[in-house]
């Protein structure tokens, strides 16, 4: 297996793992936020803002993974 073939196999798997990780993280964050809102309805504003910040960070990590994939895509094409 040469370098380009290895990269062509590894890069999609890596970005897929990043997407799965982000999805799981975001799902857990949203689930916990909804649970917290149900328990403390008076703290909805604080929970939502925390949720926004967390979601922004998780989304940014996925975008970094996508950018890294686009960077190595040039190498895959050879």
């Amino acid at each position: 297996m040469d370098y380009h073939t290895g990269l062509a196999i590894a890069a999609p798997i890596a970005i897929g793992m990043a997407a799965i990780g982000s999805g799981l993280g975001l799902g857990k964050a949203v689930g916990s936020a909804m649970e917290a809102m149900g328990r403390q309805p008076e703290a909805i504003a604080k929970i939502q803002v925390g949720m926004m910040i967390g979601a922004a960070f998780i989304e940014a990590l996925t975008i970094y993974a996508l950018l890294a994939f686009l960077l190595v895509m040039g190498d895959i094409a050879g």
Binding site: V30, M34, M37, G38, I44, Q48, M51, M52, A56
Partner: peptide, 16 residues
């Protein structure tokens, strides 16, 4: 812009 939409989406959708 992304953060603006994200915050609007969280405020609109994520509420009991």
């Amino acid at each position: 812009i992304n953060m603006l939409f994200l915050s609007a989406l969280v405020r609109t959708v994520l509420r009991p």
